[in-house]
Amino acid sequence: MDYYLQQLAIGLSLGMVYALMAIGFTLIFGVLNVVNFAHGEVYTIGAFAGLVVITAFAPPLFVVLLIVVAVGALAGVGLERIAFKPFRRFSDEASLKSRAMREATLMSSLAVSIIVREAIEIGFGSQFQTVPLDRLLNKPISLGPVTIVSGDVIIFVVAALMLGGLQYVLKRTNVGLSIRAVSSNPLGAKYVGINTDRTIIWTFAVGSMMGAAAGILVGLYYGAIFPSMGFIPGIKAFVAMVMGGLSSIPGAVICALILGFSESIATIFVPSVWADMVAYGFLIVTLIFFPRGIFGGARDRV
C-alpha cells in the first residue's frame, strides 16, 4: 500500500512537470494555431541554464529559478523571431487558416529544435552532466507512512504557484486579456486594435518560462541533464494537450496529471523502460476515439 502511495506522489510531481510543459504548448497553439516542436528544447535550455548558474555562482534555488525563467522567456522570444515570425508574412484570414503555413512552421520549429539540440551537444557533450550532489532535490521527507523526497514537494509548490500566476496573468492583466482575445479570434483581435505581434511574443515568453522552469526542476530532481532530455517530455506534454482538447488550459493540466499518474502506476506492473508506451498509447487512443480531446469544445476537423 505504502509503495502505491509513494508511486502516486511521484506521479503527481511527474504530472505537474508535464502540466507546466503542456501549458506552453496550449498557449502557443491557442494563439497561433500551430504546434511548437521546439518546446522541448526550451525545457533543455532551462535545465542547462540552471546548471550553468549553479556551477558558476551557487545561488539559492529560488534565485536559480528566477534566472532560469528569465532565460526561458528570452529563448521563447528568440524562437518565435527565428522559427515563426518569418512565416507570418501574410496576416490575412486565408493564410492564418492555411494548412500549408501550419506545416511550414511545424517543420521550421523542428529544424530549429535540431539545431539547438546539436549546438548544446557540441557545447556540453552528449553525456549526462554532473549536477552538484548537494543541489539534488532528493532529501527524504517522511509523511506518515509514505516517504517522499523534497523534490516532489518543491515541484508541486513551484508548479502550483506558476499555474496560479498564469491564471492571474490571463484573467487580470492586459497582456492576458490580449492573449485570450488573439486565441479566440486573431483577426477580430487585430481589428479592435490589439497588437497581435506583441501578443504572440508575450505568449511565447510566458509559455517558455513554464517550460524552462520544468526543465531545471526535473534536472535537479533526477540529476539527469543532457542535450536530448527535452524530446520525451515534449511529446508527453503534447499528448496532454491533445487529450485536453488543444486550447483548454484546465483540460491540459488535468490530462497531464492523469498521464503522470498512469505512468508512475504503470511502472509498478511493467519495467520502467516500457512506461513511455503509456503516453503514446494515450495519444493514439485519444486521436482515434476522442479527436476533440476529452475536455475540448468544438474544433475544426482533425
Binding site: V35, I235, V239, V242, D276, M277, G281, L283, V302
Partner: peptide, 14 residues
Amino acid sequence: SIYFAVATLGIGQM
C-alpha cells in the same frame, strides 16, 4: 495535417 503527423510520430516512437 498535424494530427496525422503527431500520430505517426507516436507510432514511430512505439
